[in-house]
């Protein structure tokens, strides 16, 4: 496979706890992390802020319906 992300069936989720003053700040932080990771089609699936920060789950879609899926490439990589 040309790229390791081609093995992902559809989306890459990143879950963590972000130290932040509120939900908006946490969302901005996780979006920046996803962008710096090189993910383009991103969204915050879940974000809940309590006390010191936020439990977050962000998602980067690698393939959406109708795309040419990397994991479906034939043995010759085409």
């Amino acid at each position: 496979m040309a790229h390791c992300l081609d093995s992902i069936i559809d989306a890459l989720d990143v879950e963590t706890f972000v130290v932040a003053k509120d939900e908006n700040e946490a969302k901005e932080v996780i979006k920046k992390i996803m962008t710096e990771m090189g993910l383009k089609d991103i969204d915050v699936v879940y974000c809940q802020h309590l006390g010191p920060g936020a439990r977050v789950r962000a998602r980067g879609y690698i393939f959406r319906a109708g795309d040419k899926y990397g994991w479906l490439k034939g043995a010759d990589g085409k």
């Binding site: 069936i9 559809d10 989306a11 989720d13 969204d43 915050v44 699936v45 879940y46 998602r59 879609y61 959406r64 319906a65």
Partner: peptide, 13 residues
Amino acid sequence: SDEAYSGGPIAAA
């Protein structure tokens, strides 16, 4: 577990 998520397609995971 994506049932209530409306921002995009359901992920296989």
